[in-house]
Every structure is written in structure tokens, then in C-alpha cells.
Amino acid sequence: MVKIIQSSVDIEEGLATLLRIDPRLETVAEVAGPLPLRLNEPGFAGLAHIIVSQVVSRASADAIWRRIIDAVGEVTAQNYLASAPIDAPGFGLSRAKAKTLYGIATAIVEGRLDLDALNLLDDVQAYNDLISLSGIGPWTAQVYMMFCGGHADVFPSGDVALQAAITHAFQMEARPSAKALAEIALLWSPWRSVAARLFWAYYASITRRDALPIA
């Protein structure tokens, strides 16, 4: 059965379990402070927002998202297709991201993609279904699963802020690769999504910069 995070109570349960599993995290938790929940509704808007967030800066991402909302209104697949340019990027998006959003919206409208049903699948199947979509990579799929699907046992090991946070916390000589970090994170199953939140909060504390993918 898929473990789903629905509230701060689940975050607290997950953190308590993590501290029992790995005592090294006690110090990390003290520095990190309260862990954020930041759940968004599943669906096109949630996935689109994550894709838009992957630009040069948070300010740029926010500006693009505001343009989309101004043009589209409620960000649904149907509304996006009615407002987005077909043959050129719009809203300040790169050509690649515009193509990804248009393709996802089209798949939803044509009934080839059901993001609500996808969130009911187990972690592996949901992940595989997401990365099968053109333009969706591992990080995007994992972040969507965590923050729009509430999956409790997902760890986006390719995230640079998580790599930096763990390097600092564990006093590692070099930043771990995505593969190496995924292996480290196996210890924190079945609450890897809470472990990720912990290290994002730790990163924010030591750098004074919020690196959490969801605003």
C-alpha cells in the first residue's frame, strides 16, 4: 500500500521514525527547525508549476507563472491549450518547456493521461509513467509525486540543494552523485520524502535561501 503524506501530523510521524532509524539526523533536525508540508493539488496545474519552476531563478519562474495565470485563468489543461501558442513558446517559457506543457495538456485532454489516477499507483509505477512523458525527467517526476501526490517514500537525489546539504551535514569531502545519494537515502525508507524535506530545511537554515521546489 502506498504511504501518503496528507498533513503535518504525517511529517511529524515520519521525522520521529527517521530519528530512530538514523541518529545522525538529530543534529540536522535541530538546525533545520520545523519542516514544511507544502502540498499542492494533483493535476495539470501542479505539474505545470513544477516544470515552470525549473528556470534560472525563482523570480523568473514566478513571473512566468503569473503570465500564465493572467492569460489562462484557472490553470487546467483545457484552458492552457486554448491560450497557449501552438507553434512558438509563450509566457517567457523556453521552446522545450513550452513543448512539454503543450504535450502534457494535450495528453490530458485526449484522455491519454490521468494525473489523479496516477497518484493512486505505487511509487515505481507512478514514477515510470511520469518519466515516460516527453520532457519529464526524474527530478520533475519525483517532485510531483512528493508535493502533488503526497508520496512519502520519494527522494530526488539529483537535486543540487539536497546534495549540498548532505555534503555539509555529514562533512563529506565531495558532493555525492545522484546515484550515490540515492543509495544513502535508502536508509531513510519508507519516509524518504520527509528526509528530503529535512535536508531542504537544513539547507535553507545554513544558506538563508529557500531551495524547496514548491513555493
Rank of each mutant, 00 (worst) to 15 (best):
A63E: 14
R67L: 11
I69C: 11
V72N: 09
V72W: 06
G73W: 14
V75E: 04
V75G: 07
T76C: 11
A77I: 02
A77T: 03
A77H: 04
A77N: 00
Q78T: 15
N79K: 03
Y80K: 13
L81C: 09
A82Q: 13
P85T: 04
I86G: 03
A88P: 00
A88T: 09
A88R: 10
P89Y: 08
P89E: 11
G90D: 09
G90M: 06
F91Y: 15
L93Q: 13
S94F: 13
S94R: 15
R95W: 06
A98P: 00
K99E: 12
L101I: 09
L101P: 02
I104T: 08
I104V: 08
T106C: 07
T106D: 13
A107Q: 12
I108E: 03
V109P: 04
E110Y: 00
R112C: 09
D114R: 10
D114N: 15
L115I: 11
L115M: 08
L115D: 04
A117D: 08
L118N: 04
N119S: 09
L121P: 01
D122C: 14
A126I: 05
Y127N: 13
Y127C: 12
D129L: 12
I131M: 11
S132I: 10
S132A: 15
L133Y: 05
L133K: 12
P138Y: 05
W139R: 01
W139N: 05
W139H: 01
T140I: 13
A141T: 06
Y144M: 00
Y144T: 00
M145W: 05
M146P: 07
M146E: 14
F147T: 07
F147K: 08
F147E: 08
F147Q: 08
C148T: 05
G150K: 01
H151K: 15
A152F: 02
D153W: 05
V154K: 01
V154N: 00
V154L: 06
F155T: 06
P156M: 09
S157I: 04
G158H: 07
D159E: 07
D159V: 01
A161F: 01
A161V: 02
A161E: 03
A164N: 04
A164Y: 00
T167W: 00
T167F: 00
H168V: 09
H168C: 12
A169Q: 09
F170Y: 08
M172R: 13
E173Q: 15
E173C: 03
E173L: 14
R175Y: 01
K179W: 03
K179R: 13
L181M: 14
L181K: 10
L181Y: 10
L181D: 11
E183C: 06
L186R: 12
L187A: 14
L187C: 05
W188F: 03
W188C: 05
S189Y: 01
S189D: 06
S189W: 03
P190G: 14
S193Y: 08
A195M: 10
A196G: 13
A196E: 08
A196T: 12
R197S: 10
L198P: 09
L198E: 10
W200R: 00
A201Q: 13
A201W: 02
Y203W: 06
A204I: 01
S205Y: 10
S205E: 15
I206Q: 02
T207M: 12
R208E: 15
R208M: 11
R209Q: 14
D210V: 00
